[in-house]
């Protein structure tokens, strides 16, 4: 039998070096993260004890907002309705925001790790929206608030038990001055 050698399809070997804009190169073109600003109070991660400027004894300080007023509300699994405790916290947030008009708020919605990534993004958005609607109803102008969902991407407690999940199903009101919304 005669074997015919066929030329394989043209092997355009994309330079294996194709890509190569590894980390450093891209870093140059990436905008500074919205939450990296100095004015932003980041409760996630290791800034959690750092609490921005001021002290909790100063009622107009972000620290007071976080610690005395309470910057977060928690949700029952797979729900986004506000509990009585949550409404009470949000009443305090609304009063604080109405008294401290220099501050803008980004309301972050979060979910626990049970559930798919996409669903949890949508669920976190529902939770953040519940908070925003409540604050709106208490007179905080829409122009001072934005919402974002992190889904299950930013847990604060990392065990895989209900004790951690309960803390992760949250909406956090992150305040900042002149964030340029």
């Amino acid at each position: 039998m005669q074997t015919k050698f066929e030329r394989g399809e043209p092997m355009s070997f994309l330079k294996t070096t194709l890509i190569l804009c590894a980390g450093l190169a891209l870093a140059a073109c990436t905008d500074p993260g919205r939450f990296d600003g100095d004015n932003t109070v980041d409760l996630n991660g290791d800034n959690a004890s750092g609490y921005g400027s001021g002290t909790a004894s100063d009622p107009s300080s972000p620290a007071y907002f976080q610690q005395a007023v309470g910057d977060r509300v928690l949700f029952v699994i797979d729900t986004y309705t506000l509990t009585d405790i949550a409404r009470n916290t949000l009443d305090g947030q609304a009063r604080w925001l109405l008294a401290n008009t220099d501050y803008q708020a980004v309301i972050e919605g979060h979910a626990d790790e049970q559930g798919t990534r996409e669903y949890n993004l949508a669920l976190g958005a529902r939770r953040a929206n519940s908070v925003q609607e409540y604050l709106l109803s208490q007179g905080v102008p829409a122009s001072r608030m934005r919402v974002v969902s992190y889904g299950k991407e930013r847990p604060i407690e990392i065990c895989s038990d209900e004790s951690c999940y309960a803390q992760n199903r949250r909406a956090v009101t992150v305040i900042s001055i002149g964030a340029g919304m």
Binding site: I19, C21, G23, A27, G33, D46, I156
Partner: peptide
């Protein structure tokens, strides 16, 4: 888990030739 950094990467189907497409900022 509570400080996870994520970035895009591309590789051959078998895990070889990994290249990163974004940084983790």
């Amino acid at each position: 888990k509570d400080k996870r950094a994520k970035r895009l990467a591309i590789m051959d189907y078998d895990g070889a030739n990994v290249t990163y497409l974004t940084d983790s900022a």
